[in-house]
């Protein structure tokens, strides 16, 4: 058994994948916790689908993929906010429109360029963690450091803002800047996670580990910490599954994360379907 885990690590590509899996599991859970508590899970999905056209254009133009994807994700977020404020359309519909449009544009662009560039649309959509390069490791590490640092430094402000945005605004916090910062963090995290899970399933790493932790602990910092642990475990397991049974890493990671969630859903001491005290049923 131990051998089964250790043996693949003699390959350098598995070492690279392992580093990326750990970093991505960590930051997705941390940043995703903010989406979870703001009930903005769908926004995570919208941003992740929005990065695709930027990715394609960056590939075609030969600029850093992470930069292209990030800008594209931010553009998607901006358009969602713009539709919501300038028309009677509600946020969820705005997200649906932007998500599908950007995704369609991305798939179209990638299909157009993939023949000449020997790239595989499936890798963008569902992840290819075993194809991680050292350049990817470096970029992922830089993003992870930025994300963790910003969350640490702005923790109290972001807690206030995500819990009670109006109270925070009245007290004088720059809520628009905080919101923009949060959206940037989410875009960065999505971009860092593309190799591991792909755009379609980033949401699994953003939301599921945090939601699992939410059933077990009840303070944001603990949701983040426990969620990070679960996220890391999920992405490492997914990586091995991808290696052994030759499935794309994204679905493998998503399924492992869902397994953890199911356990917490059934057996959480406080909210578990089978274990919660009667009085806690709401």
């Amino acid at each position: 058994m131990i051998n089964l885990l250790i043996e693949p690590l003699q390959f350098e590509f598995m070492q690279r994948s392992l580093i990326v899996a750990i970093l991505v599991g960590l930051i997705c859970a941390v940043v995703g916790s903010y989406l979870l508590v703001q009930r903005l899970a769908l926004l995570g999905d919208a941003i992740s689908h929005s990065v695709l056209p930027g990715l394609a254009i960056a590939y075609w133009a030969g600029i850093n993929l992470f930069v292209g994807a990030f800008l594209s994700g931010m553009l998607g977020t901006t358009i969602i906010a713009w539709i919501r404020t300038k028309s009677p359309i509600k946020e969820d519909a705005a997200m649906g429109i932007v998500l599908s449009t950007f995704f369609a544009a991305g798939v179209t662009l990638i299909t157009l360029i993939q023949k000449d560039n020997k790239i595989d649309l499936n890798h963008f959509l569902f992840g290819n963690i075993l194809g991680v390069t050292w350049g990817d490791v470096r970029d992922t590490a830089i993003i992870a450091i930025i994300v963790i640092l910003v969350v640490r430094l702005l923790y109290k402000e972001l807690l206030f803002y995500t819990f009670d945005p109006e109270g925070a605004q009245v007290a004088g916090l720059p809520v628009n800047a905080l919101n923009f910062g949060l959206m940037s963090l989410i875009s960065l995290t999505v971009v860092a996670s593309l190799k591991a899970v792909g755009v379609v399933l980033v949401l699994a790493l953003l939301i599921t580990p945090g939601a699992t932790a939410y059933l077990l602990v009840n303070r944001l910092n603990r949701v983040m910490a426990l969620g990070a642990g679960i996220g890391i475990l999920s992405s490492i397991s997914g990586m091995y599954l991808s290696y052994w049974v030759n499935v794309p890493s994204g679905p493998a990671i998503a399924l492992v994360a869902a397994g953890f969630f199911t356990l917490a859903f059934l057996f959480s001491p406080q909210y578990g379907l089978l274990t919660q005290p009667r009085s806690a049923v709401r």
Partner: peptide
Amino acid sequence: YPATAWDVVMM
């Protein structure tokens, strides 16, 4: 929201 009474007062 996952916050304690203390967290809220500290806001």
